[in-house]
Design a protein around this nucleic acid. Structure first.
Lengths: 137, 137
DNA sequence: TATAAACCCTATAAAATAGATAGGGAATAT
DNA sequence: ATATTCCCTATCTATTTTATAGGGTTTATA
């Protein structure tokens, strides 16, 4: 399951995407909209900013705003940033690969093979669906 | 990511599947094969037994054995038993559904829609791949 | 029938991760 | 100047995962 952090990040991006006519959006407003902790969300927005999805402006009248076009933000990138691996096993993760300690031979492991399939199908969706797609509805 | 519990369960089933010619298999032997804790594995095998995948025999000469045919054990069932939901969000889980606290309208949520797609693709694999498939290699 | 082997069951401890909070710092509009 | 708002790091709490402990029950066999 996705962590709350990731869910909140996706919601926040959605909110920012839907309010692109406004110059900046307050953390406060997003937190209120979804009934989540201001401070927790603050940390999340900061991560999204460091990752290059958001810009911000300090001081009175400041806030956050999208700096990428929604169609240029694949869901896979958001999930990997906040949650880490998308794959179901470390041994099939493209971005966070690690061998499984208990596994003698990856190439002979049937579990590995199935999980590669699952990973590929999942990524096929998450790399092609972007913020744009979740804004549509 | 799958928990170690689930990974170990899949490995144990694999081991039992590969030794179906023997009447019973000791916890000890499986634990040793994969270098995992005897006691931890014991709990896992017990769960697999209660779920109807395994049979057991107590006392000297006892042990565990498969009571289902490998092709009748879909990976989805094993994962759900040990790990819980396969879906990425509670609001799209078929077996462990819960609404997302922060979400006002599921039908208007774009994230929900994408995650339904991911769930369906994932299940399409995990419900059709069985222990038989991971034994092949 | 005594003994050792092996699973059965429940509880608890330890470690890791996730979720949340706290508090002061820096920039900026007015 | 002041109030506002993001920036940064640290810490605390709760939850979940992983692992261990220890005795109970069954059974083969000598």
């Amino acid at each position: 399951m996705l962590s709350k952090k990731t869910k909140y990040a996706l919601h926040a991006l959605t909110y920012l995407g839907k309010h692109r006519d406004e110059k900046t959006i307050l953390i406060h407003d997003i937190a209120e909209e979804y009934g989540i902790s201001h401070k927790f969300l603050e940390n999340i927005l900061l991560e999204l900013k460091k990752a290059g999805f958001l810009g911000s402006k300090k001081g009175k009248g400041g806030g956050y705003y999208l700096i990428k076009e929604p169609q240029d933000i694949p869901l896979s990138k958001v999930i990997r940033l906040l949650d880490g691996p998308i794959a179901m096993l470390p041994c099939v993760s493209l971005n966070y690969y690690e061998p499984c300690a208990e596994c003698k031979s990856e190439t002979e492991c049937g579990i590995n093979k199935v999980m590669i399939q699952v990973r590929d199908e999942t990524l096929n969706i998450l790399e092609n669906k972007t913020l744009q797609d979740i804004l549509k509805t």
